[in-house]
Nucleic acid binder design. Structure first.
Lengths: 145, 145
DNA sequence: CTTGTTGTAATGCCAAGTATTACATCAACT
DNA sequence: AGTTGATGTAATACTTGGCATTACAACAAG
């Protein structure tokens, strides 16, 4: 299974705030237009990002802004805000391995640390990318055309 | 979304082959017993592992064996055999970003390399673990009890 | 040719993602 | 104060993918 598009949507949202935050009011409808995704879905994601303290959303009047300096928000922050995996575990384990079988009884002991290592490698890489990097590259590509 | 349990199931299967391959005939029913998963699902996974050239499955008579030395099969090989993600992409992108919006038009250019880096970090870590490691740790834990 | 097994199709169920409609709530502006 | 344009959120529906299950054809060894 792939990681839900909520993550790429959230990043897209930040790119829009970076780009249009100064000139437009960035509303859920505006974002829905840019992403081509339903405004309610956008609002749900905005709610998650807000819940994680990454953005402010102006109720009533509308509009969105980032709360912290862009260098201080990583892709991992965004990923965690938006990806509601149970226990934060990347790998889904089969539920009830047979405890009467020595392998079934121990498979978690055998595997858990390895899976965690893989997950950590991915999360470390996510943590190495910040919204400042995103903004820089967004400007680079928008400048071209 | 989490990575399907097919992956942990496949690893569990290899642990069973390591442990019982010498003494039992490792059939889909046997594996279904150890994993507590339906035999048909097991056979489907066995088919994928076989398709990837990682195991031989004895049709008719039954039983399973690994084709290569364990040091030469990595978790990444198993992951790729079993996880049928389209294009092998870990991240799911929203489908039709608005090409009339400069951000929507460029979001793929902006993001793709970063997402690939994250995916590669994960896959490199998967590639660093072999079935020989799995066997070693399986023996370690089974020895204890 | 019997037996135990694999390969696979058909079907069903459930969870999660996404779309959509509807509406209450809110804050600014007139 | 009322209008207006937003957000927050519930309800509903659709689709997809994972997994379970039944059934049966194909197969290989005895």
């Amino acid at each position: 299974m792939q990681i839900s598009s909520r993550f790429t949507l959230a990043i897209h949202i930040f790119a829009c705030i970076d780009t249009f935050g100064g000139t437009h009011k960035v509303t859920s409808d505006f974002l829905a237009g840019s992403t081509n995704v339903n405004p309610v879905i956008i609002r749900k994601i905005l709610g998650q990002l807000k819940g994680a303290g990454l953005i402010d959303v102006a109720r009533g009047t509308g509009g969105t802004a980032v709360t912290r300096p862009l260098e201080e928000i990583t892709f991992l922050d965004v990923y965690r805000a938006v990806e509601c995996i149970e226990n934060g575990e990347l790998f889904h384990f089969h539920d009830n391995p047979n405890t009467n079988c020595p392998v079934g009884r121990n498979i978690h002991h055998i595997l858990d640390d390895k899976l965690l290592r893989v997950q950590k490698a991915m999360e470390d890489e996510l943590a190495s990318i910040t919204l400042a990097d995103l903004k820089k590259d967004t400007e680079k590509y928008l400048g071209k055309r």
